[in-house]
Nucleic acid binder design. Structure first.
Length: 471
RNA sequence: GGCCCGUUCGUCUAGCUGGCCCAGGACACCAGGUUUUCAUCCUGUAAAUCAGGGGUUCGAAUCCCCUACGGGCUACCA
């Protein structure tokens, strides 16, 4: 009787996947894997005007980088294929027709200009136009027109949309795993377009139909969908699917590190931290947005940080592997309020993972950076350098700034320091100490310290005078 | 404007079935120690009258109401 848990991540290919989207995908993944269910990647590309080439590949690569794996989807297929809504176009129409037949939807012939005019008219009176039970009888639709007129309009190839006929003054209940019961009066909803005049369904119809057809049991998505959840509930009941209706979980949003509002691409540029998992170049403007991967973050750190933004284990444990997250995750530990994004904490997480990595792993990554800089160095040497400086940095990309002097002579000196530390007799000290080091019977820290200390004693100098110069 | 959701240290949060909370942890901050520098690391300090106001109760961060503030939605976008 228990249905197999199935969830889906359903982004629109309208640009690079935002870090908030990654978190939504992650929560879906953690939840479904905890119960051994299936994870579906579905692409919601019903708005051809907003389609951005490359976005789909970007989404797949990003999630892949994060270690979020799918069981079905556009890139791997599956028994409910196709998983791209533009390829399922024919499927939706029959459900829109079904709704018209059972009287819960109708044809609307109003043009964009007419609707626009209506909105302006209402606005001038400080009101908001809402296509609903309050005024649908005065609009141009199949509820107001004569049958013959309707048939004529349709057969003439005129443009029309299909709208859902929202009932008046009914209480609709949405059960949310995070927020509990949410009640909305249907009179607050407008007669949403389900099927557009371009032959594509809108999000609302396509989403509900696909979730039903793909046997999705839990809809886990951002809070921005909460207001339309009652509409979706209505759709399930009108389509006769109330028994298969999935459970909902609306996730709180990610907010700007400072100021007001939700986290956006601009904040990354403004505050200097990545908002995207991978670097993205806008195909139209060539504008580049930095990504976590290219900035030197480890996917494990990004995943760990994202998981703890809005969810917590209820213990003081902060470092979690993906496996541990899957074990620990549950919706009743997901917060209800939006979380401010903290780039500093992201760095801290990365630092923790950096310290856990072997020198080999770090060296492999660093070797690539060195190569790009045209520096060819011995692998064992790179290994030593990594061991030396790894705890000084948060990101692999910061390694160079901390260790460049191991690979090339410094180009500039800090004037002030030189002035402070470099005295007339400094050169002599350095030369003498160099002698000592060269003549030493070995090259170990303890041995050298002993020899140099001896030198300092003999010359009756201060340790600082000699060592500062040497540095 | 309307509707929906939310509100504990600067930030992420613990606290959810009321007393163990004059509120705990982490990041950041500050101070001390280690490192003859810096960073790391260790220790510690400071930091929320639990948005405000009313209730309910012997007792409320925890339950109820109001207000304020924040967020989201309000397209033939998703």
């Amino acid at each position: 009787m228990e249905r197999k848990i199935r969830v889906r991540f359903a982004p629109s290919p309208t640009g690079p996947l935002h870090i908030g989207g990654v978190r939504t995908a992650l929560y879906n993944y953690l939840f479904v894997k905890k119960f051994g269910g299936d994870f579906i990647l579905r692409i919601e590309d019903t708005d051809q005007a907003r389609f951005v080439p490359g976005a789909e590949e970007y989404i797949i690569e990003s999630l892949n980088w994060c270690g979020i794996k799918f069981d079905e989807g556009i890139h791997i297929g599956g028994q409910y294929a196709p998983y791209r809504q533009s390829e399922r176009k024919e499927i939706y129409r029959q459900y829109a027709d079904q709704l018209i037949e059972n009287g819960s939807a109708y044809y609307a012939f109003d043009s964009a200009e007419e609707l626009d005019a209506k909105r302006k008219e209402y606005e001038s009176q400080k009101q908001t136009f809402q296509y609903s039970s309050a005024n649908r009888s005065s609009m141009n639709n199949s509820l107001t027109l004569k049958d013959s007129e309707i048939k004529q309009k349709i057969s003439n190839g005129g443009l029309y949309a299909i709208r859902l006929k929202i009932p008046e003054n009914k209480t609709i209940e949405v059960n949310d795993l995070i927020r509990g019961k949410v009640m909305v009066n249907s009179s607050q909803l407008d007669d949403k377009v389900l099927f557009k005049s371009d032959g594509f369904p809108t999000y609302h119809l396509a989403n509900v139909v696909d979730d039903f057809l793909m046997k999705v049991t839990h809809v886990i998505r951002g809070e921005e969908w909460l207001p339309s959840a009652p509409l979706h509930v209505l759709l399930y009941t009108y389509l006769g699917w109330e028994n298969e209706m999935p459970q909902f979980a609306h996730l709180p949003l990610l907010l700007k590190p400072d100021g007001n509002g939700k986290l956006s691409k601009r904040d990354g540029d403004r505050l200097g931290f990545p908002v995207f998992p991978l670097t993205w170049t806008d195909p139209k403007t060539n504008e580049i947005s930095s990504g976590y991967r290219e900035s030197g973050y480890f996917p494990e750190a990004v995943v760990n940080m994202l998981a703890l933004l809005g969810w917590n284990p209820g213990t003081e444990k902060e470092l979690f592997s993906m496996e541990e997250l899957i074990q620990a995750f549950s919706f009743d530990r997901v917060g209800k309020s939006g979380s401010r994004f903290d780039p500093e904490k992201a760095k801290w997480f990365n630092h923790q993972y950096l310290l856990k990595k072997s020198n080999e792993e770090i060296a492999n990554l660093f070797a690539k950076i060195l190569e790009e800089k045209g520096i060819n160095s011995d692998y064992s040497y790179i290994l030593k350098v990594c061991n030396l400086v790894k705890e000084r940095v948060n990101l692999v990309s910061e390694l160079w700034a901390q260790s460049s002097f191991f690979f090339e002579a410094p180009k500039i000196f800090d004037e002030k320091t030189v002035k402070d530390k470099w005295k007339e007799n400094s050169a002599q000290f350095v030369a003498e100490v160099k002698e000592i080091i060269n003549n030493a019977s070995g090259f170990s820290a303890a041995l050298l310290k002993e020899s140099v200390s001896e030198y300092v004693r003999q010359k009756q100098l201060g340790m600082g005078q000699v060592m500062n110069a040497l540095r």
